[in-house]
């Protein structure tokens, strides 16, 4: 048995998405925890195709994270990559998903794209303090991190409030906003791709959090400030609306 498989067998399951199972585990006894993301074998796929895809996706996700880290974007550090086994281990972020910190995020859990396997009851929805941040400040943090990521020409591909975490930090330090789940990310310099990234986030806000317009506006404001002169083309693309974006029934 490979050491990677042994690691998974000792790990605690966290959730299962469409593509991967996610665990919490320890690489060393008494060390800090890591998050293990295992792209398990897809039985419907030809084995050769499955192996090639899994390998390139694990490597791709690791590469995107490393590129973000180098550009100073807050993302989990990469701890271990075993692309042949489909396993990526990253820094464990101690904190809350932004979704759960915002109003509405606790409801309609059945719409989440992952099944919660921990069975832990989640915290009270009415987190008014937001760990010392006001909502506006949290939105600014989000806008700034997305801006930094786009400046590094990484498009996330799945920007939702579930894929951002507020890192609870040690006494006195300000919490960090961390972007997670780069499973659908890719490299692109195109205005269109970055605009779609933001549009996807706007849709996620409006479908999850009631009265989200001012929230998203704050995100955009901070994003604009971060992007500098790169903003104008993206802003223009957003204003043009959505011929290639889908469904004209709003907020469904």
């Amino acid at each position: 048995m490979s050491s990677t498989i042994a690691l998974i067998e000792s790990a605690q399951p966290i959730s299962q998405g469409a593509e991967a199972k996610v665990y919490k585990a320890y690489l060393h006894n008494g060390g800090t925890p890591v998050l293990v993301k295992h792209r398990f074998r897809k039985q419907y796929r030809h084995p050769t195709l499955d192996a090639t895809l899994t390998k390139s996706r694990v490597a791709g996700e690791a590469r995107a994270l490393l590129k973000c880290l180098r550009a100073g974007v807050n993302v989990p550090g990469v701890r271990m990559v075993d692309s042949a086994e489909g396993v990526l281990c990253i820094e464990w972020i101690d904190g809350q998903s932004v979704r759960k910190l915002l109003p509405g995020g606790e409801e309609e859990e059945e719409l989440d794209d992952a099944t919660d396997l921990t069975g832990e009851s989640s915290q009270n929805a009415a987190v008014s303090s937001l760990r010392g941040y006001d909502v506006d400040e949290l939105m600014s943090l989000i806008g700034r991190e997305i801006g930094k990521m786009h400046q590094a020409d990484i498009v996330h591909g799945d920007l939702t409030t579930s894929n951002m975490m507020l890192h609870s930090s040690s006494q006195g330090q300000r919490p960090r906003l961390v972007l997670i789940d780069f499973g659908l990310s890719y490299y692109s310099t195109l205005v269109e791709d970055k605009a779609v990234d933001l549009y996807v986030l706007e849709r996620a806000f409006s479908s999850t959090h009631p009265d989200s317009e001012p929230l998203f506006a704050s995100v955009l404001k901070a994003y604009e400030a971060q992007m500098g002169k790169e903003w104008s083309a993206i802003g223009k693309r957003l204003d043009e609306g959505a011929p290639s974006f889908r469904c004209n029934l709003k907020s469904s």
């Binding site: 998405g17 469409a18 593509e19 897809k42 419907y44 796929r45 030809h46 195709l49 059945e110 719409l111 989440d112 794209d113 992952a114």
Partner: peptide, 20 residues
């Protein structure tokens, strides 16, 4: 067939996971 259908199954699965 193997390649194209794998892509179709994959995006279908993603939609199923998304809406439960």
């Amino acid at each position: 067939q193997e390649t194209v259908f794998s892509m179709l199954v994959e995006i279908t699965e993603r939609a199923m996971a998304h809406i439960g």
